[in-house]
Design a protein around this nucleic acid. Structure first.
Lengths: 149, 149
DNA sequence: CTGATTGTTCAAGTTTTTTTGAACTAAATG
DNA sequence: CATTTAGTTCAAAAAAACTTGAACAATCAG
C-alpha cells in the first residue's frame, strides 16, 4: 500500500518519502506520531519531519486532536477534493503565475524585433501561449469541482 | 522562451532537454533539423535524438514534409488538444492502469486479514482509492475536451 | 533551573535521473 | 564499392534531487 502511494506521488513530481508517509497514515487505524513513522518506515527523523511539513502544507495531513500526550499525532485527509485543492494551490498555481510573468517579459522582448514579419510571428506564438495558460487557469476550478465529491 | 518551456516540462516531470527542444521549435519560423538543435541549444547529438523521439511519441513534434534535403526537419504541434492528449496517453494512462492492477493485489491481501474490524477498515480504504482512480479516469476525456479548441 | 523529550534545520552523503560522447547502423553519394 | 553523412544506442560521467544525521531550538516535567 505504501508502494502504491510512492508511485502516486512520484507521478505528481513529489519525493518518495511523502508517498511513504501518506501511505502509512492512510492504512493506519489510528493517528501516528513522527516517531511511529521513523520506526515503521525506516526513514530518518529529518525526512519524516520535512515530509510531514510538506503534507501539512498540501493539506494532505492534519494533526489529530485529543490524545493526552505530549507528542503530536497525524492523520491523513481522505477527501479527494481537499487533496486536489491543496495540490493545485501549492504546486500548480505558483507555476501558472510565474509563467504569466515570464510571458510578459518575453512579449516585451519580441516587440523589439526589427523584422515586421518575424515580430508578428513571435507575437502570435506568445498569444497562443497566453491562451493556453488562460485555459489552464480556468480549468482548475472545474477539475476540482468534478473530482471532489 | 526556451526557458519558459524548460520550466513547463519540468512541472510535468519531463527532462529539461525536451523543453529546450520544443521551445526552440516553437519560436522558429521554419522547421529545424537535429543538427540545428545541437548547434543552437548546445546539447549533444544523443540528447537531441532521444528528446526528439520522446516528443514524437508524445505527438508534440512532427516531421516537416517537402524540403528537398536528406536530413529530416521537425516542427512543433501547436494545438493544445493534441499536446494534452499525447501527455495523457503516454504519461497518465499507463500509471492509472498499473495503479488499478496494484490495487487489486492489495485488496486480495486485505482479505486475508483475520481481525474483522481491521479487515473492514482496509477494504473501506481500498474502495476509496478505487473511487479516486475511477474519477480520475473519467476526468481525463473531459479535461481534454475542455482544453482542446 | 536542570534534564529529558519532541521536533527542526541544513551541510554532507547517497541515490536517481539526465546528459554526454564515442562506437555503431543505415542510407545516400560519387 | 568506398566514403560521407544522418541518426541511434548505451555505458559512463555529470547534474539534480532526495535523504541522512548530528547539532540545534523549543518545550515540558520534576
Amino acid at each position: 500500500m505504501v508502494d502504491f502511494f510512492v508511485d502516486g506521488v512520484k507521478v505528481l513530481g513529489l519525493p518518495r518519502s511523502l508517498g511513504e508517509i501518506y501511505g502509512l497514515l492512510f492504512i493506519s487505524t489510528a493517528p501516528l506520531s513522527l516517531d511511529d513513522l521513523v520506526l515503521h518506515l525506516g526513514i530518518s527523523k529529518g525526512s519524516a519531519s520535512q515530509g510531514l511539513r510538506t503534507l501539512r502544507t498540501l493539506g494532505a495531513v492534519r494533526e489529530a486532536t485529543g490524545n493526552g500526550d505530549r507528542r503530536t499525532y497525524y492523520e491523513p485527509a481522505v477527501d479527494l477534493k481537499r487533496l486536489v485543492g491543496g495540490f493545485i494551490r501549492e504546486q500548480v498555481r505558483p507555476h501558472l503565475n510565474s509563467g504569466k510573468t515570464k510571458l510578459q517579459r518575453i512579449a516585451e522582448t519580441a516587440n523589439l524585433c526589427d523584422v515586421p514579419a518575424e515580430r508578428e510571428f513571435f507575437l502570435d506564438r506568445i498569444e497562443r501561449l497566453e491562451s493556453w495558460m488562460k485555459r489552464g487557469g480556468q480549468m482548475l476550478p472545474v477539475l476540482q469541482k468534478l473530482l471532489g465529491q
